[in-house]
Amino acid sequence: MLAHLASPRTGGLLALAAVIALLPLVLRNSYFYDVAVLVGLNAIVCIGLNLLIGYAGQISLGHAGFFGLGAYGSAILASRYGWPPLAALLATTFAVALLAFIVGRPILRLRGHYLAMATLGLGVIIFMVISTEDKFTGGPDGISVVPFRIGGFVLQGERIWYWVVGALLLVAVWLALNLIESPTGRALRALHSSEVGAEVVGINAAEHKLMVFVISAVFASVAGSLGAHYSGFVTPAKVAFLHSIELVTMVVFGGLASTFGAVVGAAVLTTLPQLLATFEDYEMMVFGAVMIGTMIFLPRGVVPSLARLFRSHRSADADNKANKA
């Protein structure tokens, strides 16, 4: 029973659920809720991206493109053409999944730097299309988005969004953890350590890579759609290359191949600029120092490094006890 709780699938999920449930006790006003919602949305993207980067070992520098397609797809369908937001979200998600499926096949044949270049190019193309096609997207000035509604119920206000995004985050974590523990997840990890080795034992590398690419694009697209409805406005900044880098940074900062690491990375890197805003001119310097410091002292990312530290302490304690006995 205890062992079952200690496994990340149940123990970790319960801990995350507890954090989400208890957090409102310290969220004093809607500004805090707003930051929490942004953390949640970023975390959902990062969980998907972490499946791709952390587990399957494939880099993507174009995920802001999928995020942006989700945001703009929902914005255009719901705001310009008056689609019900839920239908717009589902249609957009499907279209993004299809796009990822089509471009993923040739792109994922590439490796290392070439893969990075190709995904970067994909992101840049999406960015250019969105900022140029101003008839649909509003161009560089952006587009406003109607609130999310299901039937007669309008999803508005930070507090309601907090619970919605919180619930979705739990679902995203649960999906990711299950995927990793499944045969597919083991195949992905095998792929990460050696593609040739994996193929030798009968894993279809191309198919697995493509699948996880599509899944991560879907995570980003859904978060993008919801983010657009939540903030009521999207600009191409959300699609820009810099945002892709931010997402990858969150994943690496939190810890590769750790779903909770992705959540922690998103949380830290979303709230840190808010905390540092009071430093004014020194904001960027402090931010840089925190990043460098973490990478030097916790090189595997926050969560895996701390977990390792904790484990080695515990095993040392156990050794001590054994010696005394």
């Binding site: 500004y31 930051v35 942004l38 952006g142 903030s231 600029p273 808010q274 805003a277």
Partner: peptide, 13 residues
Amino acid sequence: AEKARTFAKRLID
């Protein structure tokens, strides 16, 4: 724009 929105919220709330 996203940052602007969050900061505006911070200024207000």
